[in-house]
Design a protein around this nucleic acid. Sequence first.
DNA 1: AATATTGTTTGTAATTTTGCGAACAACAAA
DNA 2: TTTGTTGTTCGCAAAATTACAAACAATATT
Lengths: 110, 110
Amino acid sequence: MDCTNNTNNTPDNETIARFAKAMGHPTRIEILRFLASLDSCYFGDIHNELPISKATVSQHLKELKDAGLIQGEIETPKVKYCINRENWEKAQSYFVQFFSLKHDKTSCCK
Amino acid sequence: MDCTNNTNNTPDNETIARFAKAMGHPTRIEILRFLASLDSCYFGDIHNELPISKATVSQHLKELKDAGLIQGEIETPKVKYCINRENWEKAQSYFVQFFSLKHDKTSCCK
DNA sequence: AATATTGTTTGTAATTTTGCGAACAACAAA
DNA sequence: TTTGTTGTTCGCAAAATTACAAACAATATT
């Protein structure tokens, strides 16, 4: 699925929720951190970093790819993964904007 | 559960994933936006904004509360909800820091 | 005491997520 | 052609998520 359906900078709830959901698992956060720290990033490199089966790694990568946060490219016989920079920066701006909603008010509860 | 277990500004994967997971549903994003825009925020006000049953609203509020993003206070016979400012700002800084991991590299994939 | 108001909790059902082993696909090398 | 390497997909099971109606709890009001 494509997460680039918002061209302005006021994403709808579904858009930001989709990014957040993809980030809602420790293993996927770990994968994103790892990819953000590397230039080379084959599937095997990612799998080596994690204590889980390759099937599960592949599944997490698929979810991150579907959410648009990463992309994959076949380099036979390997598969090279990396951050999807364009969507990464979109997600970044969406989260920044979202959290800045609460910036100069006092909490209504004690 | 308490999401304030990280006092420094380098949250572990579980901490950021827990915040992200709580934000991983459109209805919960809507609730957070609504709470961030209001001073008064009783359960009924939130329920009125949403086309879902009160049981489901209550459940989403519980998840947001467990994640630490909101807090509730009983004002008999109502319940007042609001953003948990302290954790909101923690989450904000965690996400900002996380996304800034990728800031001056080119994508490794074409 | 009976009623009404405000939300939470319980019970239930359908769907999704998570994880793994095994099978599979694509290709290179022996 | 067989073998090895790299990952994906399939099939399965367990657990978690989502949503709702109904029951419940706590407190006012009549």
